[in-house]
Design a protein around this nucleic acid. Sequence first.
DNA 1: CCGTCCTTTCTTACGACGTAAGTATTACGG
DNA 2: CCGTAATACTTACGTCGTAAGAAAGGACGG
Lengths: 230, 230
Amino acid sequence: MATSDARRPRLSREKVLETAIDLADRKGLDAVTMRNLAAELGVEAMSLYYHVANKDELLDAMIETVMEEINTAVSTITTDDDAGWKATLRQRILTARSVLLRHPWAPTLFETRALMTPPVITYFDAVLGLLREGGLSYDLAHHGMHALGSRALGFTQELFQPDGQETDEETEAALMAMADRFPHLTGMMAEVAHNDADSTLGWCDDQAEFEFGLDLILDGLERLAEPSRR
Amino acid sequence: MATSDARRPRLSREKVLETAIDLADRKGLDAVTMRNLAAELGVEAMSLYYHVANKDELLDAMIETVMEEINTAVSTITTDDDAGWKATLRQRILTARSVLLRHPWAPTLFETRALMTPPVITYFDAVLGLLREGGLSYDLAHHGMHALGSRALGFTQELFQPDGQETDEETEAALMAMADRFPHLTGMMAEVAHNDADSTLGWCDDQAEFEFGLDLILDGLERLAEPSRR
DNA sequence: CCGTCCTTTCTTACGACGTAAGTATTACGG
DNA sequence: CCGTAATACTTACGTCGTAAGAAAGGACGG
């Protein structure tokens, strides 16, 4: 009865962004092509350009959206107050990480493009605040931010198996066959691997490794912040 | 006199790789397109495919070449023996870094593609060896490798100004104008910046920051390796 | 009900990319 | 000199981002 009852839902910048992110989540960043995204929306490619300047702006907006998602997620954590700055910062970062785990394409984008956007600044300002709360000088806190790097945002680029591909047994076998050339690596694999259920070179529990590295840095910063105790 | 005196220098896999790397060094990775690279060699695009399976293989070979360059650079450092494992590892990593600084495109590639290639394995095996030399268990050394991440190879992806673009004064001014919204960030900038000659947000000395983070991690690992002294 | 005018979408087309398929050239051993 | 294998070129296809402009839709005053 309304003026345009059977009209299609109409495009909007929000819907474009939302669909783009969803598409990236499901099929990877490479699948986010203008034509693909348009098809997903039941629309022609060029129609997107009314809502988005170009693809670069689209990608920027995508990470900005994720960053906002992180900020809201982080804002809901009960701060437990006297748990100490380290615990608070730790949880904040792990929360950010949990959001990024739902958007595996985001880290790549974060590293690729400049991101001095308000949500990012907000996030980093809070991190910095927690470091200050720990008694770090501005100078030390600044170094600390650099030391954390992308870890402050909840991710590290894993050098091996970037695609999350499983390292197969034959690769491991091939490696073990060269025990003479790579004694330490093969030695490590022989000892460390197979302890838990995870397989072979994919033995590494990403989450555990992330937390280990994070704590290592936070502890190191705390130690540097203490005036006493060499 | 000779059978083919005036022949053009002829293509070869080595020359293709060499030119590709040089091209990336000079004009960035985006400039490394098959047609571009071919033109650089005075040749047609498809001619490259006789020496290289496809572009992916080309990129893989490029990082492999850089990795070999790192390995030879690292092999020439005088180990100074009783300087301690930390100092040795430190220098090894900084040497790797010095090579990567000549190939700014390499880090991106390193993070993008799987690189379980012999030169990389060789490198990491040596790093692992030094950690072991420091008395780390295989397990701790393994964690340490993860904690180092790309730092073990001599680089960290800088989150801000990924392109090495200078942060201009207006950006800084805009940020300072929001001192109420970002108190810590603006506070830090007011205090830390302008101490050295470097400008504004580009105040960060990448090399110094890298070394700070590296030492933080190495010290942390050393501490964990010591049985005593909590 | 009709024209007018934004707003939003579609059509068509261009140049750049990686590369498949097939053809021409070159070099060299006999 | 010629045949054969190695090397380089030609042509063409499908995909990408997107420039330019035409068409469709809705809103609104007459």
